[in-house]
Structure formats: C-alpha cells, structure tokens
C-alpha cells in the first residue's frame, strides 16, 4: 500500500476508536438527559474524577488501571447517585437553567477539589502497555486505545441489557417517556432518577479510567470532554442513546479526517461547527426521534 492510503486507513481506524471513547462519554450524558432533561455540565469533570481514582490507586497500590475499573465504576455510580439524590433532586421542577447552573457549579467544585487534592501538575502513569501497538494489515493501532474501544462496546452492551432485560431498566424507560405515568404505575421515580444519574456518572468515570494509560491526568482535563460530550449528544439527538453512539463515532472520524486533510490548527472547531449546524438545522439530532420537551 502506498503511504498515503495507509495513513488514511490508520487515521480512520484511530478516529473510530477515539470516537468510541466519545461515544462512551456521550452515552452517559444522553442517558441522564433522556430521563431527567438535565444537561450535565459536570460530565467531563466526573471523567477527570475517574482518571484520578485510577491514578491514585496506581500510585498508592500499584493497581493496574484496568483492574481499578472494578473500584472506580461503583464509586462513580455511588457519587452520581448521591449527587442526584441529595442535590439535583432538590431543585425539583424549577427552571431548566437551574439544573444547568447546579451542574456547572458541581463541575467547578469537582475540578477545583481535584486541584486542591492533587495539584495542577499533569500526571501520567507509565505502564508497560501504554505505548504498545500491534499491526493489522500495515495499520498500527495502540493497544490501550483498542482496549478503550472494546471497553466502550462492553459498557454499552451492558447498558442495553440493563435497559431492555431488567425490571429496573423498564422502570428507567418508563420514567424517561413519562415520569408522571411511571409514578402512577408505582415506579419510584426519585430512586430511578438517582440510579440513572449514577449510571451516567459511572460511564464518565469508566471513560476516564480507560483514558488514563493513553493520556495524563490533570484537574481541568474535563472541560474539553464536557464539550465533546455536548457535541456527541447533540449530533445524535439529546436523549437518544443509539444516536449518541453513532454521534461519538462520527465526531471521532470528523476530527481525525479534518486534522489530517484540512488543518490540525482547527481540529476542535470541526466538531463545534457540525454541532452548530445540527443545532440550527436539525435540533432533534441527525437521526430524528424528537425529544421536544425542552
């Protein structure tokens, strides 16, 4: 293969895998929005929390980041559950903007809390597989990036099983479609909402853990990812889970191809431009299924 074609394939493959991580983050955000109509401005900061949990466990106990998922994910769920139960639920039916502000404040508390706890200095872990790659027909793929992609698949698969194969999952869907109706049918929606927020946060935390071997942790790392999550969910339609997955993959590919062929200088702008275009032209997302209750 000539080097240009090879580079194209490699860029596509890596874009797809990066998009997988975006999808994981976006799914969490979209799930929360779908059930509670809350745009979680702290989403990226929860991701940062995940990174620091894994970092801490690695530095203190030499726990492999992938193993630390077993601790980080439940912690993330618990954190999200508590936040919804004891903070956001108290906002009740107040203006949508108040939940936006509350999560914005929460994000600032999380990132600045991490700053106080861990310092501003970026920290990375140096595990043996961090730079390991393997070749697939000439295309070179990073091992941790592939693991992150597979992790996304697994997490989303599990979420599907949960939503469509369990009693609680049915309650979640019912609450998403009609909270009042679900309440009348005996669903404890307060509880369901806390579970959903917990799940959404757990997704962000898992993404953070999966990213740690690829990147480095610093307290304000979340800002960028919150924005990516917004882009992903708006592309797919807020509250639309399959849409968020496709949205993530699309964003990953747009960014990679844009950076490769157009200009790396505007890498972050490509997603934002598409985001604005979708917002203005198709606010329900690329794939229809209107969630107009906003």
């Amino acid at each position: 293969m000539d080097p240009n074609t090879l580079a194209l394939f490699q860029t596509l493959a890596q874009g797809l895998l990066t998009g997988g991580i975006y999808a994981l983050i976006g799914t969490g955000l979209s799930l929360i929005f779908g059930v509670m109509r809350v745009i979680n401005f702290a989403h990226g900061d929860f991701l940062a929390v995940g990174m620091f949990i894994a970092l801490f466990l690695f530095q203190r106990f030499h726990l492999d980041p992938y193993l630390s998922l077993l601790i980080a994910a439940p912690l993330g769920f618990g954190l999200g559950y508590l936040v919804q139960r004891f903070l956001l639920a108290r906002l009740g039916d107040r203006l949508e903007s108040s939940s936006l502000l509350a999560t914005l404040g929460l994000g600032l508390i999380l990132s600045n809390g991490l700053l106080l706890g861990f310092g501003a200095q970026p920290q990375s872990i140096n595990v043996a597989y961090a730079t390991q790659t393997f070749k697939l027909g000439g295309v070179q793929i990073s091992l941790p990036l592939l693991v992150a992609g597979l992790g996304t698949l697994l997490a989303i698969g599990l979420l599907n099983l949960f939503l469509y194969r369990t009693e609680l999952g049915r309650a979640v869907r019912a609450t998403a479609q009609n909270p009042l109706g679900a309440e009348l049918q005996g669903v404890n929606t307060t509880w369901v909402q806390a579970v959903v927020f917990g799940l959404g946060v757990a997704f962000a935390v898992v993404a953070g853990v999966l990213l740690l071997p690829l990147l480095y942790a610093f307290p304000t790392v979340g800002e960028n990812y919150t924005l990516k999550a917004f882009v992903v969910t708006v592309l797919g339609g807020l509250g639309n889970l399959p849409g968020a997955i496709v949205g993530g993959l699309i964003l990953g590919i747009i960014e990679s191809l844009g950076a490769y062929y157009l200009s790396n200088n505007y890498r972050d702008a490509y997603g934002l431009v598409v985001f604005l275009a979708v917002l203005l032209l198709r606010p329900e997302g690329l794939f229809g299924r209107t969630v107009k209750r906003v």
Binding site: Q10, T11, Q14, E223, A259, Y260, S263, R267, D268
Partner: peptide, 21 residues
C-alpha cells in the same frame, strides 16, 4: 501545524507526518 492546548489526540497529524516522511 499547531494544536490547541489540552487536546490530547495527535494521531491524525502524526499520521500525516508519517506519510510525508
């Protein structure tokens, strides 16, 4: 090329360099 700070995926541009050699 330049990149935005905090951006952490350099793969596309590095792939381009690889092709340009």
């Amino acid at each position: 090329d330049t990149y935005d700070q905090g951006l952490t995926d350099f793969r596309p541009i590095l792939n381009r360099y690889k092709a340009l050699n």
